[in-house]
Design a protein around this nucleic acid. Structure first.
Ligand code: FES
Ligand code: FES
Lengths: 142, 142
DNA sequence: TTATTAAAGGACAATATGGTCTTTTTGTAT
DNA sequence: ATACAAAAAGACCATATTGTCCTTTAATAA
């Protein structure tokens, strides 16, 4: 489904939000361990997300990552656009340069429906909504 | 959706089948041009598909690629398994090592449905069924 | 103020994917 | 038999992705 960078970003952010709910600000070592991802690579990815404005961080003792409570929830589609580019789920499944209803490829009829449902999923769900599910239903992050 | 190799393989095979329907056996130069793919890379991919037994080829004058009429239609899922590995559409959308109904990730509930519909699509459709659609409805390969 | 902690930054390496080109082999037509 | 055409084979290169590690910066606590 997603590439590694997106996976680590997604799992990492959900873990951070989950800890924020418990009034904690986890650091890279803890995060990487909990989501079973390479520590330094995860750190680099989180850095980028901070620079992109999705997330905040604090250096030094007691530091770590956290979400700005004043910001709106982060839709997965925003995250994916940042990590994989914004045409991930708009392009043709057959590999044509553009998906065009009027000049469809032989996959279009069935694929377009699926693509729409993926877009709905990643627009409806947010890092926060996933963290809530994990919290309430005691789901897994690894 | 798919990686480049799978895309070129898919478009190439559909083009070959389409030409076979017209009693022609296209070669690598023609195929690559018609599907707008890199010529030598396409040639290499087709070689692999021949070795994998999906396709046949003839060298020399009048040679080219063609499907064995006695073989059953080639499901897209078989092709994708060969090019991308067989766990492409069975793994967890959140990146967990295994997708498990009993220990679901927070994406599972909605993602599993979509994944099922992808699996249905690539099981139902075959290279031949796509070629038929292109033939009957005069659809696009590029 | 100083020691400590943790993120930021950046160099570097490994691997996978995507792509090009040349030579060899094999089949066909003449 | 010979020339030619086209796939097969394989060396090689480019780029993107994934991953590691070391140094610097900034924040906190003592
Ligand atoms: S044209 Fe291929 S998916 Fe729309
Ligand atoms: S557990 Fe993640 S998709 Fe099933």
């Amino acid at each position: 489904m997603f590439n590694k960078e997106t996976e680590y970003a997604l799992r990492g952010l959900v873990y951070i939000k989950l800890q924020n709910l418990k009034n904690r600000r986890p650091g890279t070592t803890e995060i990487a361990k909990e989501i079973e991802a390479p520590q330094f690579y995860t750190a680099k990815i989180l850095q980028r997300l901070v620079r992109a404005g999705f997330l905040r961080s604090l250096k030094g003792k007691g530091g770590g990552f956290f979400f700005d409570p004043d910001k709106p929830d982060l839709q997965l589609i925003k995250l994916i656009s940042a990590t994989e580019g914004d045409k991930s789920y708009s392009s043709c499944g057959f590999g044509l340069k553009h998906c065009d209803n009027d000049k469809p490829c032989p996959l279009h009829e069935k694929y377009a429906v699926i693509r729409d449902s993926i877009n709905k999923l990643i627009s409806d769900e947010t890092v926060q909504s996933l963290a809530e599910k994990v919290y309430k239903k005691e789901l897994n992050l690894r």
